[in-house]
Design a binder for these strands. Structure first.
Length: 271
DNA sequence: AAAAGGACCTGGTGGC
DNA sequence: TGCCACCAGGTCCTTT
C-alpha cells in the first residue's frame, strides 16, 4: 500500500511525537506478519528511548540505545498514534505504548508488513544492505539509472520498481513518473537512452516530492498518523484512470497487466 | 545473472 | 442475499 511518500509523511509526523519518548510496554496480539514478530520485543523494547526515527526506502527505523526497531507496512499496513488509547479493533496487531501514555498502533489486514528488531548495525541487515539509492538524494541520477540498465531486457517499469536499482518507487508513482517522462512502460530498460533516463529521474523526483507535499496518496485505506487520508490522488494523471481521456492529449488511458501489477499509460504520449 | 512467476494474506467490488 | 472471480499501494523466494 504505502509507497515512499506515504512512509515519509508518516515519519515526519512521528518525529515530533515520539523522538525522545520512552517505551513502557509492547503488546503483540498477532505475531504472524511477513516474518514472525520477535517475542523478545515485548521484553526488550520497554525501557528504551526512541532517539531518532529514520526512513530507508519504505522501511521505518526507530533508533534506540540498544538497537533499531524496523517497520515495513507491506501492502495494507498503517500506523496510528492514539492518546488516549482506544480498544483494539480487528487487525490491530501491535501496540507500542510510551511512558507519556501515547500508543503507536500497527494495523495490517493482509499482514504483508513486518516488525523486526535489529541489534547490530541496521545498514548491514539483509533487508537493507542491498537497497539502491534514495530517489530524492543527489546520488540518484539519470547517468546512474542509464548505466545500470545496460544489457537489461526487463520492462522499464519493472526496472524502476526494483528496490535494488532505486528504492521507494512503487506501482502508483512508477506509472505516474513514466507518464510525465513520456516513456512507455513496456520498453526494455536497456534500450532507453541517456537523456530519456535523465528526464525520467527528474520526473521520479518531481512526482515523489509533490506526493510528499500532499501527504501521500489515499486510494482505499491508507491514512496518515492521525487518521486522515492523503491528497495526492487528486494529482494522479494515469493511475486508476483506465479509459479516461489523457490529460495531455485526450486519448483514452490504457490499462494493461504487467506481471502481477497493473499499468496505466497513454500510448499516444508515451513512446 | 537476469527474468518471470509464486508465495504470503484479507477485504472490497462487481457479476450472476 | 449468496457465491465466485478478480482486484489491491510490496517484495522475498524459487524456478526457468
Amino acid at each position: 500500500m504505502p509507497e515512499l511518500p506515504e512512509v515519509e509523511t508518516l515519519r515526519r509526523a512521528l518525529v515530533p511525537a515520539l523522538e525522545g519518548q520512552w517505551v513502557s510496554q509492547v503488546i503483540i496480539r498477532q505475531s504472524r506478519l511477513r516474518w514472525p514478530v520477535p517475542e523478545m520485543l515485548a521484553h526488550h523494547f520497554p525501557g528504551q528511548q526512541v532517539k531518532r526515527i529514520h526512513r530507508r526506502g519504505k522501511y521505518l527505523l526507530f533508533e534506540c540505545c540498544q538497537g533499531y526497531l524496523l517497520i515495513h507496512l507491506g501492502m495494507s499496513g498503517s500506523l496510528r498514534l492514539l492518546s488516549p488509547v482506544s480498544s483494539p479493533q480487528k487487525h490491530d496487531h501491535i501496540d507500542i505504548i510510551f511512558r507519556n501514555h501515547q500508543c503507536l498502533r500497527y494495523h495490517d489486514p493482509r499482514r504483508f508488513g513486518c516488525i523486526l528488531w535489529i541489534s547490530e548495525s541496521p545498514w548491514n541487515h539483509p533487508l537493507l544492505a542491498h537497497l539502491g539509492p534514495e530517489p530524492l538524494e543527489d546520488s540518484f541520477t539519470g547517468k546512474y539509472l542509464y548505466q545500470e540498465a545496460q544489457g537489461r531486457r526487463v520492462a522499464v517499469k519493472n526496472y524502476i520498481m526494483d528496490a535494488h536499482q532505486v528504492v521507494g518507487v512503487g506501482n502508483i508513482y512508477a506509472n505516474e513518473a513514466l507518464f510525465l517522462a513520456g516513456i512507455h512502460p513496456n520498453r526494455q530498460a536497456g534500450e532507453i537512452g541517456r537523456s530519456a533516463y535523465q528526464k525520467l529521474v527528474k520526473c521520479i523526483k518531481q512526482v515523489l516530492q509533490k506526493a510528499i507535499e500532499q501527504g501521500g496518496t489515499t486510494l482505499r485505506d491508507y491514512v496518515t498518523l492521525t487518521g486522515h487520508p492523503g491528497d495526492f490522488k487528486n494529482f494522479l494523471n494515469v493511475y486508476g484512470r483506465a479509459q479516461e481521456a489523457c490529460v495531455r492529449c485526450g486519448h483514452p488511458v490504457q490499462y494493461q497487466k504487467m506481471g502481477q501489477r497493473s499499468s496505466y499509460f497513454c500510448s499516444n504520449c508515451q513512446k
